[in-house]
């Protein structure tokens, strides 16, 4: 009797999973691109003000809950006439938060590389850009892969807070199904299983990648 509802529950939750995946993917792109750009400026600039501004950005993003950022982007900006869809607001909000996290990770990764690695690249006649692309970045990414993996699984779980601004992701559907069907345990158990079935393969993939690239060897 109770399990009769399972197919329709799963169908709804899977639709939510698609949205969650879109949010996670979009946010990851912003986080990665912006985080890397900020980290490069952070590590290589000689302008103290820029480093200070980046440090302030990171502190701000880390000390305010992501949910508050989403509310600000979705409700706050709407009140001054800038309207995002819930999904877009979630992508931008989680992306900006993630950029702060990855900026920290990438900066630390680049600083952990011995300065001689880059010097050797310049000494053989590579330009700074070539040294970055061929020597610094590949090593930095290998070094930070475990942290990037952690961030990725955290991000997928964090897409759940987008339900608070009515982005139609997994928890959003779960809650509306609960109010319409009252199959509370079944619905939330299904949601949990769904999250696990997304996050686990991602973690596994990163672990495999770490082993293949010999991280920490």
């Amino acid at each position: 009797m109770m399990l009769d509802a399972l197919p329709s529950i799963l169908t709804a939750l899977l639709a939510g999973a698609v949205t969650a995946a879109q949010v996670a993917f979009g946010a990851a792109l912003i986080a990665f691109g912006l985080g890397l750009a900020l980290a490069l400026v952070n590590v290589f600039t000689s302008v103290a003000v820029l480093r200070l501004a980046i440090a302030a950005y990171i502190e701000w993003m880390r000390n305010v809950p992501a949910l508050a950022h989403l509310f600000l982007l979705y409700f706050g900006l709407a009140s001054v006439g800038v309207r995002f869809s819930p999904k877009a607001a979630a992508i931008i909000g989680l992306g900006l938060v993630g950029a702060a996290v990855l900026c920290d990770v990438f900066s630390a990764g680049m600083r952990a590389l011995h300065v001689g690695q880059r010097e050797a690249a310049l000494a053989v006649g590579l330009t700074p850009m070539q040294a970055l692309r061929c020597v610094v970045l590949p090593q930095m990414l290998r070094l930070t892969l475990p942290s990037i993996g952690n961030y990725a699984s955290q991000l997928i779980k964090d897409t759940s807070i987008a339900s608070a601004i009515a982005a139609p992701e997994i928890m959003f559907y779960a809650r509306s199904l609960v109010t319409s069907t009252f199959q509370t345990p079944l619905i939330y158990a299904s949601a949990i299983a769904l999250y696990a079935s997304i996050v686990f393969p991602v973690s596994w993939m990163f672990n495999r990648l770490e082993r293949r690239l010999g991280v920490g060897r």
């Binding site: 011995h114 001689g116 690695q117 010097e119 050797a120 690249a121 310049l122 000494a123 053989v124 006649g125």
Partner: peptide, 14 residues
């Protein structure tokens, strides 16, 4: 720089 080779104390192979 490409006309001048350099060998470092700590090698700095990639």
């Amino acid at each position: 720089r490409s006309e001048i080779g350099m060998v470092f104390q700590l090698f700095y192979l990639w």
